[in-house]
């Protein structure tokens, strides 16, 4: 039991002890956080560029019944079952949103709102009725339990212990995302920037869209257990937006995901160690803090650079750019 909200800050217990006395579990939690941020950040760049941030939010909520039903049927955290369940739920979400807004006068934003809240409600009902005493807690759905990851069974491949299963999975998904982005970089770039041009170049615009959505669903499922459905949205959006205050080209934004992920993961872990709060929550708080810093001090469009009052400090480095629209 604690009295104070902010415990006294003790450098040793916050920064040294976790690495000194419990290296393995600390390392695993940080690694898991890193993988989650990395995978989400890479996909998230395209999600943000395509203005799908809130669709990402909707999908992350809607996957819940799929995951929950997979749980019910396999009564374990069987990864293939969860992936299938999530894929079905993901497809169902897209189809339902399309159906509602095509076949009635309900606008897309409301259609998204209706579908994801309903599916999420179904998921919560299933969990609270059937899975409450199993290892899936309704609250955990909302903020994840990354701290418990080191306790999970190990993934053994060819005799080599590759660490706890969720970490191996998340690492594989992150790798897959990165590979997909490298291989399909051009298609993703052009379809995101100018779908008309993409079509005129013979690129499969719709297939790319659904492919991206599937990759997104896959990433969310893998990350779900660690950070929960709401915080995963943060992992999608924050890296891309934060890096946008430093870089102006997509490859740079994508490379920027890696250091940011490391910062989120380490910062979140130690913040949570200090406050003794949810690690996933603390990771997003770190991400939010870094965003605010970038928002103020980022060289590309940061507040300080834009503000007239402070402008004189930076006049040397700042070139006034011609107006956006002429006549």
């Amino acid at each position: 039991m604690r009295e104070e909200f902010f415990p006294t800050f003790d450098y040793g217990s916050v920064f040294v002890d976790p690495w000194w006395s419990g290296f393995e579990s600390t390392f695993q939690v940080v690694l898991m956080g890193f993988f989650v941020c990395l995978a989400c950040g890479v996909i998230g760049n395209f999600v943000v560029a395509r203005r799908l941030a809130l669709v990402g939010d909707a999908i992350s909520h809607s996957l819940l019944p799929g995951i929950a039903i997979a749980f019910v049927f396999t009564s374990s955290r069987s990864l293939p079952a969860m992936l299938i369940g999530a894929a079905v739920a993901g497809v169902l979400t897209t189809v339902l949103i399309e159906l509602i807004h095509r076949k009635s006068r309900v606008k897309p934003d409301a259609a998204i709102g209706i579908v994801f809240t309903t599916l999420f409600a179904v998921g919560v009902v299933i969990i609270s009725i059937w899975l409450d005493n199993v290892h899936l807690d309704a609250d955990c759905v909302l903020y994840g339990e990354i701290g418990l990851v080191p306790l999970r069974e190990s993934f053994i491949l060819g005799g080599a212990n590759l660490g706890p299963l969720p970490i191996a999975t998340m690492g594989a998904v992150a790798l897959l995302d990165i590979l997909l982005v490298i291989v399909f970089y051009r298609v993703l770039l052009v379809t995101s920037f100018d779908a008309g041009l993409a079509r005129s170049l013979g690129m499969p615009v719709n297939t790319t869209h659904y492919g991206l959505m599937i990759a997104l669903a896959l990433t969310i499922v893998a990350a779900f257990e660690a950070v929960g459905v709401v915080l995963v949205v943060a992992m999608l959006i924050f890296p891309a937006v934060t890096a946008g205050f430093f870089f102006e080209r997509l490859p740079a934004l994508l490379f920027g995901v890696a250091p940011l992920s490391l910062a989120y993961s380490l910062g979140g872990f130690h913040l949570a160690k200090w406050l003794d709060c949810s690690i996933a929550g603390a990771m997003v708080v770190t991400a939010g803090a870094l965003f605010v810093v970038a928002w103020f001090f980022g060289p590309k469009g940061g507040l300080v650079y834009r503000s007239r009052a402070l402008g004189f400090l930076f006049t040397a480095s700042k070139q006034k750019i011609s107006p956006q629209i002429v006549g």
Binding site: R2, R51, A53, D57, L231, A234, C277, S278, A280, V284
Partner: peptide
């Protein structure tokens, strides 16, 4: 863009809330 701005606030604020809540649950 608007969707990202909403997403940032949604998840960022929510995360702060979750952190405080998890601390509260530890308090007496």
């Amino acid at each position: 863009k608007e969707d990202s701005a909403l997403g940032l606030v949604l998840s960022g604020f929510y995360a702060v809330g979750i952190c405080i809540l998890t601390v509260i649950q530890e308090m007496e």
